[in-house]
Simulated scan of single mutants.
Amino acid sequence: MATSASVSNLFKPAPQTRARPLAIARWLELVALLVVGIVVVGGITRLTESGLSITEWNVVSGILPPLNEAAWQTEFAKYRLTAEFRMESGPAGMDLAAFKFIFFWEWFHRILGRVIGLAYLLPLIVFAARRAIPAGYGWRLAAMFTLILGQGALGWYMVSSGVGNTNLTDVSHFRLSAHLLTALFLLAGLVWTSRDLRLLARDPAARSAPLTAGAALVAGVLFVQLLLGAWVAGLNAGLAANDWPLMNGRLLPEVDWSQGALWTVTHDPFLLHFLHRWWAWVAVAALVWLGRAVRKTDRFASIAVHTAFGTMVLLGIATVMSGVSLWIAAAHQLVGALTVAATVWAMHSNGVARQGGVTA
């Protein structure tokens, strides 16, 4: 009872004189940058097929990479038991140097996850102990930390789909999409909450921005595009064609519907590649509307949205035509995360304008 009481006391509303909304907003923006970074590293991990190189999840001992030759050989031996190694390493196999390369990206991805957890938890404890969290925000900040913990669990759940299955040479694209979209949802929450807190720093009477119907529709359209992109990545469907706007010289790809419509729509790499290409233009139309809707009240957000989706489309085309070049594809994922951040910023500004306020 005493422990639960002490925890609840941490999140008691701060007196107005002790609240630090601007400092909390800046902290959340820093964490948001770290989330963008891990999304990019996660993309590189997928593109280099590094995700299954570490076959165990050790929260503490996994912080350090192998430190001697024997330890490297032990990790390499574990990887050689996976279906990915047995079925995709080729006649020549993989040497230790190549294994170290893919191990690095998965290890770095996991380390960034731990850094984000600490970068969020430690300041949260300090702000809560000092009762610097404004009224109404304690639950939201606690919820985002729970999301960070859940993201780590989802990451291992995703990896386990490839490590524990003798038939899969990659992780489940459904679990990969859940892992990526949860990270982007966390990014959206960080951006939205930081914008609310900046408003509060300017005006202690400011209310949280509402989500308008139009902004919610834009979010739904963008969600579909991000989901399709995650499935394309998980199924290596970007390699289904390397020409644009046609696919292998055809406007419509050849699709095998023999396994049923549901399976085809969620598994066929040619169809998913096609849908990701052309749903992008629905997303562009929605983002143009949002950018224009906030142009007069928040010009920066409008410019950011237009710049982000324009760059993302060009990088998407370049990714296809380059045969999924590692760094072009990674840049595409980077700008995808920035598009989410810019979109959420504009959605927030749209809500502020609707309630007659001034953007931060």
Rank of each mutant, 00 (worst) to 15 (best):
D203V: 08
V265F: 15
L184Y: 01
L197A: 04
F223G: 03
A206R: 00
N165Q: 00
G220A: 00
L181F: 03
W263E: 13
A237C: 12
G220T: 03
A241M: 07
G249F: 07
N248M: 13
V255K: 06
L228R: 09
N242S: 14
T166L: 13
G189I: 09
W231M: 13
T266R: 01
P253A: 07
W257P: 02
P253S: 06
R207V: 14
L168I: 01
A240Q: 10
S194Y: 06
A237S: 09
A213E: 14
P253I: 10
A215W: 08
S194A: 15
L226E: 10
L168G: 00
L227M: 12
W244A: 10
R195K: 13
T212P: 02
V221L: 14
R250C: 01
N248T: 06
T264H: 01
T264P: 07
D170G: 09
L184D: 02
L184I: 03
L246S: 12
D196F: 02
W231V: 02
A205T: 15
L186I: 15
T182S: 14
L252H: 08
G234P: 03
G220K: 06
H173G: 08
G260Q: 02
P210T: 06
L187S: 10
A188Y: 04
D243M: 05
L246D: 14
V255N: 09
P253F: 05
A183K: 08
V224P: 07
D203S: 12
L211G: 03
L184T: 07
W244S: 02
Y157V: 06
E254W: 06
M158R: 06
V191H: 06
